[in-house]
């Protein structure tokens, strides 16, 4: 159930400019509105893309959040890989890593 609330937090944040202002100015109050575990709250406080990915946040929700945090594209992909390396496989949902962590673009391989 907690993953549901974690994703809902990000869903609201991604689409609502008022929530985005609150995220920047009063994050703790915003967090209080959602039933989150300590691990989830901390991941949001730190913008921990790798952990959020492993926790099972839908990739599309997470991608929009990474864009909101102004994380560069290849860095965003690498943060997810680092999350897997640190925390293990994705725990829920359909956005698991299946490619062994390699880059599938020539542009990425050159980074």
């Amino acid at each position: 159930m907690s993953l549901y609330h974690l994703q809902k937090f990000l869903y609201e944040l991604n689409r609502d400019e008022t929530a985005q202002q609150k995220y920047r100015n009063d994050l703790e109050t915003l967090l209080d509105d959602f039933d989150l575990s300590d691990e989830e709250s901390n991941a949001l406080r730190e913008g921990d893309i790798g952990l959020l990915y492993v926790l099972g946040v839908n990739g599309q929700i997470l991608m929009h959040y990474a864009a909101f945090l102004e994380i560069e594209w290849f860095a965003y992909l690498e943060l997810m890989r680092e999350g897997i390396a640190k925390h293990g496989p994705v725990r829920a949902g359909v956005y698991a890593m299946t490619g062994g962590g390699e880059s599938f673009t020539v542009e990425g391989k050159k980074r």
């Binding site: 990739g59 599309q60 992909l77 997810m80 890593m97 299946t98 962590g101 880059s103």
Partner: peptide
């Protein structure tokens, strides 16, 4: 496609 995963670009 495998968008919004580390496999992004896999086709």
């Amino acid at each position: 496609h495998w968008p919004a995963t580390p496999d992004s670009g896999k086709i």
